[in-house]
Simulated assay, not measured.
Amino acid sequence: MSSQKTQLKCIFSPKSKGEIKMVRIKVPATSANLGVGFDCLGLALEQYAYFDFEEAEELLISGCDPVFQTEDNLIYQAFTYTLEKLGQKSRAIHLNIDSSIPPARGLGSSATCVVGGVLGAFALTKTPVDHYQVLQIATEIEGHPDNVAPALYGGLIASFMGENKIYTQKYDIHDSYRFVVFSPDFETSTKEARERLPEKIAFSHAVANQSKLVFALASLASGDGELLQAVQTDQLHEPYRKVMIHEFDDVAAFAREAGACSVLISGSGPSILAIFQEEVPIEKLRTQVSSLQHEWKCYTVNVDLGGAGIC
């Protein structure tokens, strides 16, 4: 994916003394892995976090739990890290967060914060945005590009880190597919989910996943739901992670009985992503999950194609 340069506009607050710059950044949620795309695929979703950055005399963070209203806030950390990368002086800001993306649910909340902080620094300093540079900085902070790349670019993105470069590729998704998120009332730790993975896997499992990934991408682009159903059986991470997700088998069974082509762990969980074609019996699914012990939010969501940017 080639680099792009865009000049973000700055918005001025009429309530401020003088003209204190204020910008609003919008970043989509993401669902990583998508079954056989372990650590290399990510999908941007039309569920958003909004971050308002305004220059201030001292740091003030609002719109989130008080425990995150400090200099350790991930968004602010990404903001200050990026200022340093851009050769800009550190500055105090008023940061307001308005997010519908729950933390620690496998919907890319941390990547959303990182991308928001990086773009906020570009925008507030009126620095022309080079999207590849943003991707580099965000990946340095996040540690991997599989969530930050779709959050930044939108759509279905494959990514991998070479020795000196991050490679990304956007893939098409057929418009017949419908996506449903099942998000529970409990969290899972990405660190713990990573620790659940075995140190070694069977050679046959690696070959199977590699083969299936090629066909999964083709089926997502072509709208071949039967093929998608056949190839979305991961053997690298889902068997080890699903045991951390209470009632996973129940939710998966409800989705498959309702006609889902594919049922996947979103990121490292605990949210579950189901892929349907054409029709989604959403009210029936909501009724079914309401019978479970845990509270599951069940909702349809579209693919975000635009990625992060200024509002």
Rank of each mutant, 00 (worst) to 15 (best):
D175Y: 15
S176M: 10
R178D: 03
R178F: 05
R178K: 15
F179E: 00
F179N: 00
F179P: 00
V180I: 08
V180C: 00
V181L: 15
F182N: 00
F182D: 00
S183P: 01
S183N: 11
S183A: 11
S183I: 06
P184F: 09
D185P: 05
D185K: 10
D185V: 12
D185F: 14
F186E: 05
E187S: 14
T188Q: 05
T190V: 12
T190A: 14
K191I: 06
E192H: 12
A193F: 02
R194F: 04
R194K: 10
R194G: 02
E195P: 01
E195K: 15
E195R: 11
E195A: 08
R196I: 02
R196P: 00
R196A: 07
L197F: 05
L197T: 03
P198H: 07
P198V: 03
P198T: 02
E199A: 11
E199D: 13
E199K: 14
K200D: 11
I201W: 01
I201L: 10
I201R: 09
I201T: 10
A202P: 02
F203I: 10
F203W: 13
F203K: 13
S204L: 12
S204T: 11
H205F: 13
H205M: 03
A206E: 06
A206Y: 07
V207K: 07
V207S: 04
V207R: 03
A208S: 13
A208K: 15
N209A: 10
Q210E: 06
Q210L: 12
Q210I: 13
S211R: 15
S211P: 05
K212Y: 06
K212S: 15
L213F: 12
L213S: 03
L213P: 01
V214R: 13
A216Q: 14
A216D: 05
A216N: 08
A216G: 08
L217H: 04
L217N: 04
L217E: 05
S219F: 07
S219N: 08
L220T: 02
A221Q: 14
S222D: 14
S222I: 07
S222G: 10
S222Q: 14
G223M: 03
G223V: 02
G223R: 07
D224E: 15
E226H: 13
E226V: 15
L227G: 09
L227W: 05
L227I: 14
L227C: 11
L227P: 02
L227V: 14
L228G: 00
Q229Y: 06
Q229T: 13
Q229L: 09
A230G: 03
V231A: 07
Q232I: 15
Q232Y: 11
T233F: 10
T233V: 12
T233W: 01
D234Q: 10
Q235R: 14
Q235L: 15
L236R: 01
E238F: 08
E238N: 08
P239Y: 09
P239H: 08
Y240I: 01
Y240K: 01
R241V: 02
K242H: 06
K242C: 07
V243T: 13
M244F: 09
M244Y: 04
M244A: 07
I245V: 13
H246K: 15
H246I: 09
E247K: 07
E247A: 13
E247S: 12
F248G: 01
F248R: 03
F248L: 04
